[in-house]
């Protein structure tokens, strides 16, 4: 899997690169549009992370260029602007997804995984970890072919953590992903814990070969046991 990150903020670029390399992707970077253009001209990428708010040229032009070559699949627009027009125009030009800055790396990870699933695993939209399998379209979860009944939130948590398998997912990242932006001023994320507890119980009574670990008040990690 080959990913190109077009981003001018050096530290941000390093973070994204490091995160994605942990997932064993081949990551290339460009810090301006010119070098981005030349890279796109030479290589094919499975996924392109495109910051459209770089100084100089408009990032949407790169998207137009990609579209003219018929390779807009797998483009995720990253924008600090969080403006609706950018989002609509970007998606109209064929981008797959839109991720407003700032974002959690776990969220980025989940979005990239979703793109790869859509592109590579056409039809069999399924995530498997040990004897646990998550059917994404039908939102069904089963352990060794026995279906689990999960409520909406439990499913979202499990799916998000599974998308970030073996990675530490920050509590606030989990809360934002599952409960939405508006929850983020809640006095604590303790309420997440009760959902995690229920989920753990359901997984362990069904002998799922996964474990939900709490990491020091920072967040949670899903690992295969």
């Amino acid at each position: 899997m080959k990913i190109l990150i077009i981003e001018d903020e050096e530290q941000m670029l390093q973070n994204m690169k490091q995160t994605l390399e942990k997932e064993d992707y081949l990551v290339e970077t460009a810090t301006d549009y010119d070098s981005a253009f030349s890279k796109i001209g030479v290589y094919d990428y499975d996924c392109i992370l495109l910051d459209i708010s770089l100084p100089g040229k408009n990032g949407l032009e790169i998207l137009r260029e990609l579209k003219s070559r018929g390779i807009t699949d797998g483009v995720i627009i990253v924008s600090a602007k969080n403006s609706l027009e950018d989002k609509i125009e970007g998606l109209n030009l064929g981008a797959d997804d839109y991720l407003p800055k700032p974002f959690h790396m776990a969220e980025l990870n989940a979005r990239i995984k979703a793109i790869f699933r859509r592109r590579k695993l056409k039809g069999s939209n399924q995530l498997k970890i040990g004897n646990l399998s998550i059917k994404i379209d039908s939102q069904a979860v089963s352990v060794a072919d026995k279906e689990l009944t999960l409520n909406r939130k439990e499913f979202d948590i499990l799916f998000y953590l599974a998308s970030n398998k073996d990675r530490l997912v920050n509590k606030s990242s989990l809360a934002e992903h599952v409960w939405g932006d508006h929850i983020d001023q809640a006095d604590s994320f303790d309420f997440i814990y009760s959902q995690i507890k229920n989920l753990r119980k359901k997984l362990s009574t069904n002998n799922a070969e996964v474990e939900l670990k709490s990491i020091y008040g920072i967040g949670y990690k899903l690992t295969a046991s």
């Binding site: 941000m12 973070n15 995160t19 942990k22 700032p102 959690h104 790396m105 530490l168």
Partner: peptide, 17 residues
Amino acid sequence: LQTPLAISINKLELLAE
């Protein structure tokens, strides 16, 4: 402030791993 904040959080998350 958004970007430096996000970068710091991301770095610490990576460190926590």
